[in-house]
Structures are given as structure tokens and as C-alpha cells.
């Protein structure tokens, strides 16, 4: 029958229209600024820099190795190394970035920087409200705007952040244990040297030469 298809189609449209008043499945949109769809845990938008503790200047994990700058596909990251070294989270002296800029008008949210970073320093943010009247400066994020605390990272990507924290804590414990062992060995060596000086005929004690075995990782 001519027009049968139209009638069938209109029936479906009507069903969806009236259904949207009582059936949540048929209401597929939300009223955006007031209602929001909750962010997915893996969601990503633009990168940010993670820092530990309270002070972004002290706790920044980034060591300015510039791997992300080289690997970034659209080349939107710009880093200048600082001239002085500062201790990082495991106490090792590392450079810090003096300048760390990300041009989010160029960034394509691909997450390559996060993947290549060996220091868990750069992560993906879920914030997407970057609207600004300043076309260039407003979209050029500097180090201060990029730095966000680890607590924020844990809030937006809970599972991922927990894994990262665990790995970093293990590394830190290992480094601390190693530092402690080194210090002990050094102290013992100094003690034996002092003892050797004190007594003209050195007595080989059964425990010397004591090199503390590294504790189990």
C-alpha cells in the first residue's frame, strides 16, 4: 500500500516521543550545563603534570628528560631544562623543567606522552572546559597551570593512579633501603678504618669485611 512505510515510521517516532516522558531508555540526551554525564574513568582530554605533596615547585615528578617533547606527534610540548639539579621522589638528583608549555590548541589528546614517560610525571586530565577569549595565550598552558597534585590524579583515574602509586612506593622503598644499606656500609667501613688506625696490629675480625647484603626488594 502506498504510504504504508510512512505510517509505520511515524508510529515508531510517536512511540519514541511519548516514551521519552516515562522511559529512561528512550530519553537519550541530557540538558548539558545543568546535567552532565559522569566522566568515564579512562577518559582523557589534555595532559597535566603530577606533583607529590603540597608544593608544585618541590614535588614535580617531571625531570625534563624531553622524551615526551620528542615523541609528541603534533609537537605541542616545549621544555627547557633547569640548570640546577633537585632531588626527585627517590632522592636522586635530577633536572627539573624551567619551562614546560603545552599548547592545547595543537594537542590532539593522543596520550603518547603519557605512555613514553618513564617517570609517571605526565598524565591525562579529564577537564574539557578550556574556552577562552585569548586565542593564543589562553590555550598555552604553562608549568604552573599544568601542575596538579597526585590527589587530583587519584580522584580522576582511581585504578590507574593506585597502580602508579604502588609502583612508585616500591621503587622508593627500594631506593631508601639501598641508601640505608650504603650508609651503613660506609659507617662500618669508617669504623673499621678507625679501629685499624687505633691498633697498630690489625686484628681481622670474623665479621669484617662487612658488606651489608641488600635487603630483599
Amino acid at each position: 500500500m502506498l504510504g504504508e512505510g510512512i505510517i509505520k515510521g511515524m508510529a515508531e517516532t510517536a512511540r519514541n516521543f511519548f516514551g521519552s516522558y516515562h522511559d529512561a531508555d528512550r530519553m537519550t540526551t541530557v540538558q548539558f550545563p545543568e546535567d552532565r554525564i559522569p566522566a568515564k574513568e579512562n577518559a582523557r582530554n589534555f595532559p597535566f603534570l603530577v606533583f607529590d605533596g603540597e608544593d608544585p615547585a618541590k614535588g614535580l615528578r617531571c625531570v625534563a628528560c624531553q622524551i615526551c617533547e620528542k615523541e609528541c606527534p603534533p609537537k605541542c610540548i616545549y621544555i627547557v631544562k633547569d640548570t640546577v639539579k633537585k632531588p626527585d621522589y627517590i632522592g636522586k638528583l635530577q633536572f627539573q623543567p624551567r619551562v614546560f608549555d603545552i599548547d592545547v590548541s595543537v594537542c590532539m589528546s593522543c596520550q603518547i606522552c603519557v605512555e613514553v614517560c618513564p617517570f609517571e610525571a605526565i598524565k591525562m586530565d579529564t577537564d574539557y572546559e578550556f574556552g577562552t577569549a585569548d586565542r593564543f595565550g589562553g590555550l598555552l598552558l604553562n608549568k604552573q597551570r599544568l601542575a596538579k597534585p597526585n590527589t587530583y590524579y587519584r580522584k580522576i583515574h582511581a585504578t590507574e593512579a593506585a597502580e602508579v602509586d604502588e609502583r612508585l612506593a616500591a621503587e622508593k622503598a627500594k631506593a631508601e633501603a639501598k641508601a640505608k644499606a650504603d650508609a651503613e656500609a660506609k659507617a662500618r667501613a669508617a669504623a673499621t678504618a678507625a679501629a685499624a688506625k687505633a691498633t697498630p696490629t690489625p686484628v681481622v675480625s670474623p665479621t669484617a669485611p662487612a658488606i651489608a647484603p641488600a635487603p630483599a626488594k
Binding site: E69, K75, C76, I77, Y78, D101, I102, D103, S105, V106, F136, G137, L139, L140
Partner: peptide, 10 residues
């Protein structure tokens, strides 16, 4: 063209 974060050859 103007580029806000010029580096390397840019």
C-alpha cells in the same frame, strides 16, 4: 604563521 610554542626548526 605565528606559533605560540616555537621550537627546533619552527
Amino acid at each position: 604563521d605565528y606559533e605560540p610554542t616555537p621550537h627546533d626548526e619552527v
